[in-house]
Amino acid sequence: MTLPQELEQKFSEIIGKYPPEYKKSALVPLLLYSQDALGKITPELVNEVARRVGVFPLQVEEVLTYYSMLHFPKPMGKYHVQICTNVSCQLTGGPELWELACKRLGLGHKEVSADGLISLEEVECIGACSWAPAIQINYDFHHFVTPEKLDELLDNLRQLQ
């Protein structure tokens, strides 16, 4: 499988971090950066990554299905809205944000909009407890999120399209 040049470069950079006999270490980073670059993890990618790090595809699948940020076989949307409802956010309005997002987007947990643009996930603690409630859209953190702010963020996503 041919990878986009930038991703290919990232692959070399990541694999280069580990002693050659332990290049299997690159497995999770390769998958995560591939998912970011390609938008999804496909069986072809699984085979490719397996080949790159010298393991069986099953070993990639074992790892792939373990980590919650890796979405396989179903990809998430271009904008993945992650709303934390864990305890600190729970106390400060996280569940209300979650309800609102569900309603606004017409999506449930790990559902993707028909056009593939937006997906929604109720996530576990994202490490923003002191600035709760917090959400992440892709890798961007948003702290002290109010319903109004969430509305605005979701509106922006639609416009970004």
């Binding site: 971090k17 999770v28 980073p29 998958l31 995560l32 373990y66 980590y67 919650s68 940020m69």
Partner: peptide
């Protein structure tokens, strides 16, 4: 070197 996790 940095190494990224992936949600666990």
């Amino acid at each position: 070197f940095t190494h990224t996790g992936a949600g666990a």
